[in-house]
Design a protein around this nucleic acid. Structure first.
Lengths: 196, 196
DNA sequence: CGGTTATATATCGGAGTGATATATCCGTCC
DNA sequence: GGACGGATATATCACTCCGATATATAACCG
């Protein structure tokens, strides 16, 4: 999860921890919160595993920033993580999808479609579960819980619509390949946000 | 978080771990996922802290279920946890609000309003943050991330509307006190679900 | 009777949170 | 110029939670 985000950012260029965190928080903000307590241990882990390596900038004494570069092993790791979406990810893990979406540009079109479709499946199951619970517990729960369930269903339905838009846009782009260059994704652009 | 849910359920009646988990998953389902790996340690902790105590049902050899009862210390703990909403809870913690809502019936009207208003503040801040990021990074992010941000804003706006409905209903109920008994919360019932 | 499913508790490694500590670097106000 | 505050930068801590797994017994059913 965090690994994926780190590896994804390092694909663009080498960075140090603080910058990584800044980048993630700046663009995704509350959609994917990152804490230092997770980030620095993750970097250490990735370094141990050989997915990233430390790079020492030209000068000599500059030992205050730890700059990391993606290795080829890290490249492979990123691809593996991307493909694995939907296997380890649980019903409650919405961040996983968001992060993957944020790095969609690095994936092959088929991979993108696969991720979107698995996401759709998860959301559909969630919706079915909520409907099921609502109908069998309607009488027994209080008005607050009822409202919670209903809003949960509404939100999930909207998330599904959004994913459907993304799927449609992806299919459209697959049919008439890279023409609009800058103007892709037009259909999906009126939607935003995600999750439960 | 989990503590609050456990304590809240035990207010109704004494239960053992498995039943607790079942109850939570049955009513809240994917809106508040509970794992045994969190539940059993939490029960042990609460017992050590004196918030719950083990109760041995009449018979002698029935040592297969560990039934827990809420103590008066546990009662106080529940109240404290409820009031503390918004202090420890971060931007990313949407479960906290959901669980509290599921136990709203045990709170005083003022407490309910307080929780709702703090929730509203968090969501408003989140929305502002998303808007801010969208406007300052619009040119630099790809279409996928853009769509993600937009959907995030949409969802957050809907969440705010929902909370507003709940607040209105709460205020209404405060003005003409407990008349409709069963038919409270009418205004908020067309909405449901939550979170980014 | 044996097999499957539901009930029930426990524990483990790994990962994330929120807090805190501790530096250095940089601008700027007096 | 030097004190101060804020941004930069890394690290670690206790705690909580997740997902998986192990291990029982009870209940149902053909």
């Amino acid at each position: 999860m965090l690994d994926l985000a780190i590896l994804g950012l390092l694909k663009e260029r080498s960075m140090h921890g603080y910058e990584l965190k800044k980048r993630l928080s700046d663009t995704l903000g509350p959609l994917f919160p990152v804490s230092y307590g997770a980030l620095y241990p993750a970097l250490k882990r990735l370094k141990t595993d050989g997915a990233v390596e430390e790079v020492f900038p030209q000068a000599e004494v500059r030992r205050r920033k730890n700059v990391y570069r993606l290795t080829s092993e890290g490249q492979r790791r990123f691809d593996r993580l991307v493909e694995s979406f939907g296997e380890r990810e649980s019903l409650g893990d919405d961040n996983g999808f968001r992060v993957r979406l944020a790095f969609f540009r690095y994936m092959k079109p088929e991979t993108r479609l696969g991720v979107l479709e698995r996401r759709r499946t998860v959301l559909t199951q969630r919706l079915a579960e909520l409907k099921e619970r609502l109908s069998s517990y309607r009488e027994r729960v209080d008005a607050y819980t009822l409202s919670l369930m209903r809003h949960g269903m509404d939100s999930t339905e909207r998330d599904i619509d959004w994913v459907d838009d993304l799927i449609r846009a992806e299919r459209r782009a697959a049919r008439k390949p890279r023409r609009p260059r800058k103007r892709a994704m037009a259909g999906a652009s009126t939607h935003g946000g995600d999750e439960s």
